[in-house]
């Protein structure tokens, strides 16, 4: 039996909004540690890995591991029936064929309850290898979104070059080219606006603009985003949550 209560429905709504274009059907794996989701997009180019830890819920109970097969388009329809500020409760029995979604307003004088039919999804979990990343860049998530947005109209690919001196995003297309360079900076009073680079060696990756921009749907979940890069390896784009994380992996483009 799963019972999870979130004080604000907005967290769950935003998380589902952020992944629903990449993934249509997926299992929410419920354990005593929390809710997790791991799924690839249909073209097997990117992978979403979500973790909402139990301590992020005001109430959480899961006495037996459950895999809830959910169609995210359907879940979105139900989540839109609740307001962002509502208290959200997710409930499913051990052999339930539906997930109960309850909303309660902050005045506690309006309760609504919806049931989402569950699906049987045969999903393969990929083993994500431990990677020693050459560079880790933490920057404002809005800045990353802006770069991806600006470059989408110029090129299908963005190359990220990271050195000690800074990180450079470059794009090259039919109409011309562009680049944005960010240098590490710090501001004690506004740490969310800092750009931080941890580098063991210079690294360069070429990535699909479309997918990177898709990851930016998570911008509203976190003021900062971390990009982790290793040569010829998938990039890890991580949005930290107050209790858990939303991670995206994207395979690089390689010169043939």
């Amino acid at each position: 039996m799963l019972e999870g209560k979130l004080e604000q429905a907005s967290l769950f709504k935003k998380v589902v909004e952020a992944v629903r274009e990449l993934v249509q059907d997926c299992n929410f794996d419920c354990t005593e540690n929390g809710l997790a989701l791991q799924a690839m997009d249909t073209s097997h180019v990117s992978l979403v890995s979500l973790l909402l830890t139990a301590d992020g819920f005001s109430e959480y109970r899961c006495d037996r591991n459950l895999a809830l097969g959910i169609n995210l388009v359907s879940l979105t329809k139900i989540l839109r029936c609740g307001n962002n500020e509502d208290i959200l409760t997710l409930e499913a029995g051990d052999s339930a064929d539906s997930l109960v979604v309850r909303f309660e307003n902050t005045q506690q004088d309006r309760m609504s309850e919806y049931a989402l039919k569950l699906m049987d999804i045969d999903q393969e979990h990929l083993g994500i290898p431990e990677t020693e990343y050459a560079a880790s860049i933490t920057m404002p998530s809005t800045e990353f979104q802006r770069i991806c947005r600006d470059m989408q109209s110029i090129s299908e690919s963005i190359t990220i070059d990271c050195t000690k001196g800074g990180v450079k995003f470059t794009c090259e297309g039919d109409i011309g080219s562009g680049s944005v360079t960010l240098k590490p900076n710090s501001s004690a009073d506004k740490p969310e606006l800092c750009t931080k680079i941890d580098l063991s060696e210079p690294v360069s990756l070429t990535l699909s603009t479309k997918y990177l921009l898709n990851f930016c749907k998570a911008t509203g979940l976190s003021q900062q985003v971390t990009l982790k890069l290793a040569d010829e390896n998938p990039i890890l784009v991580e949005y930290p949550l107050s209790a858990g994380h939303l991670r995206f992996y994207l395979a690089p483009k390689l010169d043939e």
């Binding site: 180019v45 992978l47 990929l126 395979a251």
Partner: peptide
């Protein structure tokens, strides 16, 4: 143009 790789090339199937 560089070619898009798939993730299964990097991440192991169970």
């Amino acid at each position: 143009q560089p070619s898009q790789q798939t993730l299964t090339r990097f991440f192991a199937r169970p």
